[in-house]
Design a protein around this nucleic acid. Structure first.
Lengths: 250, 250
DNA sequence: ACAGCCAAATTCCTCAGACAAATGTTCTAC
DNA sequence: GTAGAACATTTGTCTGAGGAATTTGGCTGT
């Protein structure tokens, strides 16, 4: 039998999960997808670990992960309870990935792009004011690779990611960097394999160049609006779950 | 006597931490404050748990919490390594609290307010377009309480928080809500006890009313700019580390 | 009948020790 | 010199036990 590691094509997007990680992922998906409702109690540690056929240690570490992301809360004598949605760390990279793991909620996806629009456009404007020559050089090189290899190749996608990474770096705000990279990672991994089949509907290079030139020119307003259009185009190119009416969870 | 209607929730700012939670907090503070550097290896589980005089179970659960927030990464035969800053979930509420637990870094605080400015102003603009009469009623009531009791009292501060909470609610974007409430909670808890002694330097009610009226009028642009000034005023009123008084001291 | 205190039951929390799995390192064969 | 095997080390998982915290119910005094 061949190894099942056939996924790992050099990129560390698929990190091998330990047992506690798998349990946390499964439970996390069950929670964010609504199979457990806020206020519900998970069955006790002993019962849960027995049902999953794992040790209490592994199960407890999984619960600890979920608690760290605000999804659950454990107290003696009461049990482990699903927290209200207002306490969830919705922007945690794992929570984002779990949220969009299966059938992405259309409203949620739109809200996410709304946030991306706001934050990334602002980041571009800040980058226009703070970028150094080194930043510009790295961004130019990234666009070069993107144009040379196209997004159909690994190298091309890497150029795309590098462009955005350097743009964020140029914004100089670590919180914006942390927020955006996490969101982008989740969006990429969840939408990438979907648009694997069909060719990209549009050439993204000119739009990136427009952002770059605005940043290079030190024009915050233009950088803002150009990045905003870039995000809107990304939303348009995102394959939406049009199968909503057809498929039903079985 | 009717029960307390508004948000029912008291203030959970002081949550009792279990052993693993305390260890995670201590280690987390040590990491975000730079006492451990990215790339550093923590001493092995057995040695660490012995030095802390706790069981390996408790220590491992603490590490699991830190790993869930992106601060560390564990691999067999290698150990538990401090992750590069780019992987930290800087906007995780706990990480934020740990970051500003002791001596808040001035640059980081400024970056945080920069993000608040961007996101909360956008949220106010969205709220101006999407608010319902119920939202407006709740916000009006919150401002009322804020004006009646002043921010020197618990009830007044609750009104302030309720105002912002309802404004975010009116924005209708769960990601913006999650982001902002987490940031606000961290900023509040870290700056609140500092400005307890001195009286507030300025009456915040008129500024809040300005935001409210713009939202009520359905004017996104005005709501945007009024909220922006509100955030800037909040930054001005934030007691900064007085060590900056003499800038070029040494 | 009711408020406040006390005891009991339940659940998570912590501990200790052992073995298994994974991974980096070293050694060996060719 | 390189590829593969053996080894050592560290985290990962399991098991069993007891302790700690919190809710629940009952008891007591008024």
């Amino acid at each position: 039998m061949a190894k099942r590691a056939s996924f790992g094509r050099g990129r560390p997007i698929n990190k091998v999960l330990r047992l506690h990680g798998s349990i946390a992922r499964d439970l996390g998906i069950a929670i964010v997808s609504g199979r457990y409702q806020p206020g519900d109690l998970l069955t006790g540690e002993v019962a849960s670990s027995e049902k999953l056929e794992v040790s209490r240690t592994a199960y407890r570490e999984a619960v600890r992960i979920l608690a760290a992301k605000g999804l659950v809360e454990s107290k003696p004598k009461v049990g482990t309870k699903i927290s209200p949605r207002s306490k969830w760390n919705l922007l945690d990279p794992d929570v984002l990935a779990w949220t969009f793991a299966n059938e992405p909620d259309l409203d949620l996806l739109q809200s996410l792009f709304e946030l991306r629009d706001i934050v990334e456009a602002a980041a571009a404007a800040m980058a226009a004011k703070r970028r150094t020559p080194e930043h510009l050089e790295a961004m130019r090189d990234a666009i070069d690779r993107m144009a040379r290899f196209t997004l159909a190749t690994e190298a091309g996608r890497l150029g795309d990611q590098d462009f955005h990474r350097w743009l964020l770096e140029a914004s100089g705000n670590p919180y914006i960097i942390s927020l955006t990279t996490g969101v982008q990672a989740a969006v990429n991994t969840t939408t990438m394999f979907k648009q694997r089949e069909r060719p990209l509907p549009r050439d993204p290079v000119p739009d990136h160049i427009a952002v770059f030139e605005a940043v290079a020119a030190g024009d915050p307003d233009r950088a803002h609006s150009e990045m905003s259009t870039l995000v809107h185009l990304a939303l348009q190119d995102t394959p939406l779950p049009r199968a909503r009416a057809k498929r039903s969870a079985g």
